[in-house]
Design a protein around this nucleic acid. Structure first.
Length: 709
DNA sequence: GCGTGACATTTTTTT
DNA sequence: AATGTCACGC
């Protein structure tokens, strides 16, 4: 069996690709050729006629990964990939529900709510039910609903144990009723609906189970409980599931990803049929040593150790900065030096834990004239002007959509205010009709709005998708509104871009319908920042860096409370997730890795003093190079640890409190503890102390009787 | 209906 | 610091 396809694969990769028709778990470490194995497996199955292209179901986590897979497959195989079921969980669920909308109990042109839309739907519902949004925060309600849906529970399945949860469950029920009435579905609803559809409809289930002989899952560690159950439902007795994942790279537990799925899958399906891909083709030895050492301190692992055939390479450079600005200028200098040595800017990444950290870095880069690109922030289809335009379109195709109605009824302003809308809502509720229906039988300004929409509907009938959208933008008054606005130029351009996006969509997809385009807009929010442009340094959060690789990587802000994030201390296994995050960050680097931390940092408008992240201490000293290991900072106060003291180091000096970070203290009431942070100055100075028994407390130094231990 | 100022809030992110 | 949310007054 010497297919050219299988050349250049290592033995483990080859074994994974050519596995017989049975379920298996592939533990694929960072940089071990995961995507390659997945796509080659798919091609191999088809090429050796073990399955037809339509008998394969391949699920990924992001649209990008799905696209990548299709591109690679069609590069290896001369087949039309269009009819193949390759996509994200949500994309495939959408496909299933569109095909069987009647059986699923949905209108043909049901609309998809993104998280924003969902939140405003919840707020609207709570308002109509007169629920106190102080007592029940809409965000929490959203979280409640989504996490139950993601666990496969409907409102009546929720076990309420007190008044609060009873009320939450009632809201969940009412929310679902509202969505049903309006013909809309939120993200988790897509999955749950699709799941219920197959669960209840045996012929349909049989059909799909017979059809899909092979299911391939990417990033399996990121699946939540519902997604796993979804896979199990699609898998018939003769279906093999090929799941690829890396438990060490699970960084989405905070949104429901369940790593336990991997162990469960091994038990339920793979039966010990596990292949580990541990050879790393990306990084030099020292970088892998650091990553391996760090991650080995996590208790809950399936176990895996990366190795490389490459040499040790360079040591990992540690920089100890006085301040965030000092850190930024260090990065600027190093980036320039590397660039001079021939490393292109786009092959370097500047990573941070949270988006707020980018500003100081951007400022320094900008001043120094280093081109950079920031990933993150608002995405194309999430921009307000685009959402407005989409809401008009939604209303055209689904008049029951009250959310869309409310979004545009008075934008641009047409003199329809809260009072008028209240009356409309009342009359709609009385007759059990949608706001749109009620508006059609109104008079005055509301009637002219109804007429406007009706006219647009007439005028766009028969137009191509981009022409229709263009018409909507003009006729709705959106274009005029932004033309009149002095800051509206960008927004106008984005509306133009929306028409372009529609043109592209109509060309690429097989069905250029408005419904399909709206689903596309909801499911694929678009690039974070479209301009691919010139050679530029890449700035992004560690989360956003997953799956990418760079010649040189800077990981900044390695301070306690920032990375690991302080929030993680309050979550179950939060620290382990942070450590995995750090692991992901380290393994992005091919050749050179910089780790930096700052002793002081501007955070939320205040200067905060931080101590170096524990993750730095968890790295093996022999692979590190301290660029500026200083003698202890000059301690003007005369307090603090002796100069030779190892960690915890006093991370700041002379802050007039008489205490240092990491110092042990005694409080008459709370007992012994350690100072972990300072806040404020002078008479307002406060310290954050982590007590051995009494938890963490913020104490005002002027009052607390704190003494050194 | 709309603009203004007070007020809180502040992880990570996809779909 | 920066941004969003909300109540209030015109």
């Amino acid at each position: 069996m010497s297919l050219p396809l299988l050349e250049n694969l290592n033995p483990e990769q080859r074994a994974a690709v050519t596995l017989p028709h049975e379920s298996a778990l592939i533990l694929a470490g960072a940089g071990s050729g995961k995507t390659r194995v997945l796509t080659t497996r798919m091609v191999w199955l088809i090429q050796t006629s073990q399955v037809s292209p339509l008998g394969v179901l391949a699920v990924t986590f992001t649209n990008k990964a799905a696209k990548e897979m299709l591109t690679r497959v069609s590069a290896m195989l001369p087949i039309n990939t269009r009819g193949m079921w390759v996509g994200t969980f949500h994309g495939l669920a959408n496909r299933l529900l569109r095909t069987h909308y009647r059986e699923a109990g949905l209108p043909q042109s049901f609309q998809i709510l993104d998280s924003q839309d969902q939140l405003s739907a919840i707020k609207r519902l709570m308002k109509s039910l007169n629920v106190d949004s102080e007592k029940f925060e809409p965000k929490k309600v959203q979280w409640f609903i989504n996490s139950h849906k993601e666990a496969g529970r409907r409102a009546h399945d929720v076990e309420a144990y007190d008044d609060y949860s009873t009320r939450m469950a009632e809201l969940y029920e009412a929310y679902d009723a509202q969505c049903q009435r309006e013909g809309v579905a939120d993200f988790p609803e897509l999955l749950l609906r699709a799941y219920e559809l197959l669960y209840r409809n045996e012929p349909l289930r049989q059909h799909y189970q017979d059809r899909f002989r092979h299911i391939l899952v990417d990033e399996f560690q990121d699946t939540n409980s519902l997604q796993y159950r979804w896979l199990k439902l699609f898998a018939g007795p003769r279906t093999a599931i090929f799941a690829v994942g890396d438990d060490d790279q699970s960084i989405y537990a905070f949104r429901g990803a369940n790593t336990a799925n991997m162990a469960e899958f091994e038990r339920e399906f793979a039966h010990g049929n596990v292949i580990k891909l541990e050879q790393n083709y990306r990084s030099h030895g020292n970088i892998l040593t650091a990553a391996n050492t760090l991650i080995s301190q996590n208790a809950h692992r399936l176990g895996k150790n990366l190795w490389t055939a490459e040499g040790e390479g360079e040591p990992i450079r540690i920089f100890d900065a006085y301040s965030d600005q000092d850190e930024a200028s260090f990065v600027v200098d190093e980036v320039r030096a590397l660039n001079r040595d021939g490393v292109s800017l786009s092959d370097m990444a500047l990573l941070y834990r949270s988006n707020a950290q980018s500003r100081v870095l951007e400022h320094a880069l900008f001043s120094a004239g280093v081109p950079y690109r920031v990933y993150g922030g608002l995405r194309f289809f999430e921009r307000q002007e685009v959402k407005h335009a989409l809401a008009y379109l939604r209303l055209l195709t689904n008049p029951e959509d009250d959310g869309a109605f409310l979004r545009v009824v008075n934008f641009p302003t047409r003199g329809i205010g809260a009072r008028t809308l209240e009356q409309l809502a009342e009359s709609a509720a009385r007759s059990g009709a949608s706001l749109w229906q009620a508006a059609c039988t109104s008079s005055g300004k509301m009637a002219s709005f109804a007429k406007l929409i009706e006219d647009i509907k007439q005028a766009t009938h028969g137009l191509s998708l981009p022409d229709a959208i263009d018409h909507v933008i003009e006729a709705s008054g959106l274009a005029d509104y932004y033309r009149a606005d002095k800051d509206g130029a960008d927004r106008l351009e984005n509306l133009n871009e929306l028409v372009n996006a529609a043109t592209l969509f109509a060309e690429e997809s097989d069905e250029g319908t408005l419904d399909a385009f709206l689903a596309h807009a909801a499911l694929e929010a678009g690039e974070h920042q479209a301009i691919a442009g010139h050679d530029a340094l890449q700035l992004m959060t560690v989360h956003a860096a997953k799956g990418l690789e760079f010649h040189a990587v800077f990981i900044t802000g390695l301070e306690e409370g920032l990375f690991p994030h302080e929030q993680s201390a309050h979550e179950e296994n939060g620290l382990e997730e942070e450590r995995r995050l750090m692991y992901v960050a380290i393994t992005r680097a091919r050749r050179r890795l910089y780790l930096s931390h700052a002793q002081s940092r501007m955070l939320h408008g205040q200067i905060r003093y931080g101590i170096p992240s524990r993750f730095l201490a968890e790295l093996p000293e022999q692979v590190l190079l301290h660029l500026n290991r200083r003698a202890e900072p000059a301690l003007s106060s005369g307090y603090g640890a002796p100069a030779s003291a190892p960690a915890p180091r006093p991370a700041q000096s002379g802050n007039e409190t008489g205490f240092t970070l990491g110092q042990s203290v005694i409080h008459p009431k709370f007992g012994t503890g350690i100072i972990i942070d300072f806040e404020g100055r002078g008479p307002d100075a406060r310290v954050l102390v982590k007590f051995r028994d009494a938890g963490t407390k913020l104490l005002a130094l002027a009052y607390a009787r704190l003494s050194p231990a």
